[in-house]
């Protein structure tokens, strides 16, 4: 089973929830994927032993100037404008290239080959019994999706079908989130009971509905703000899976890199209960 954790708004507690969820069910076989590759931080809490670090590249075009007749087809088909064809010259802008391969496929002269450009690293290790994989995008790179895809593929290769995979996604509703959550059996949306939390929750809900992924909500810092998230969930038949109170003790644990389920043992049961609920809902 694949359970992704996403949020809409940043800083609502995705990693807090994902880490504690993974730890609470560690009697099962668990894989943890940190797919928030622009700022992976689950390792601060799970403290994995990294055993392997693999570079991840995307294919970018290399032009054979001997074969090229400067017809301009490559620039024409490039949706990202990563190529400029000038009389007698082709310029490649590797940072704009998304690695789709369209140019090399469609070049009438066969003048384009693909070479790898490293965009980040995939790190693989273990945290106790949990298999841990994270992507780390190189600083300055604008394109996280190919790295997230690589992490997901690696996890799929290694995965025992009976295992539970917990995916920590990035905030927002962009391509990175879609790449991180797609194909999951259930998505937990973490929000906070504030106007910003609600606004971004609604956007995330729209994305998940489009993707056809069942989902429920965790309200973090419950007790602050207002009750509009509750009303919204009620009106839209969205199950509230768990409430984590706005509690100084939890904040202190977080600042020390201690997962809630380790710092406050009573949460072990709560997260386990949430997982049971998630399993039920994903079957329904």
């Amino acid at each position: 089973m694949i359970v992704s954790v996403a949020s809409g708004k940043g800083g609502t507690g995705k990693t807090t929830v994902a880490v504690s969820l993974a730890l609470s069910i560690s009697e099962e076989e668990v894989q943890f994927l940190d797919c928030d590759v622009e700022e992976p931080n689950a390792s601060i809490f799970l403290k994995p032993q990294i055993e392997e670090a693999l570079p991840v590249s995307i294919p970018v075009p290399r032009i054979d100037q001997e074969k090229c007749n400067f017809c301009g087809k490559c620039a024409e088909v490039c949706a990202y404008h990563a190529l400029a064809v000038l009389p007698g010259k082709v310029l490649v802008f590797p940072h704009l290239c998304h690695g789709c391969g369209g140019c090399s496929l469609l070049c009438p002269q066969g003048a384009i080959t693909e070479v790898g450009r490293e965009i980040g690293t995939m790190e693989i290790g273990r945290s106790g019994d949990i298999e841990f994989i994270q992507g780390r995008l190189n600083v300055g790179e604008a394109m996280p999706t190919p790295l997230i895809r690589a992490v997901r593929e690696e996890a799929k290769k290694r995965r025992n079908p009976a295992a539970v995979t917990v995916i920590d996604a990035s905030p927002g509703t962009s391509c990175s989130v879609v790449e991180a959550v797609k194909g999951s059996d259930f998505c937990i949306l973490v929000t906070e009971p504030t106007p910003f939390g609600l606004n971004d929750l609604i956007l995330a809900v729209e994305v998940l509905r489009k993707l056809g992924i069942p989902f429920g909500v965790v309200i973090n810092r419950s007790g602050m703000g207002n009750d509009k998230v509750d009303f919204y969930c009620q009106e839209n038949n969205i199950p509230i899976l768990l409430r984590i109170p706005f509690d100084r003790e939890i904040a202190v644990l977080y600042s020390q890199g201690i997962p809630i389920v380790q710092g406050k043992k009573e949460y072990m049961e709560r997260f386990r209960g949430m997982m049971d609920h998630v399993k039920e809902l994903s079957r329904a």
Binding site: Y80, H81, A82, A84, P87, F93, L96, A142
Partner: peptide
């Protein structure tokens, strides 16, 4: 028409003007 491009507007505009 590059005005609305998400990325690469400069590259495309540059190529257009160059032609």
């Amino acid at each position: 028409f590059s005005m609305e491009a998400a990325s690469g507007a400069g590259v495309q505009s540059g190529q257009l003007v160059a032609t």
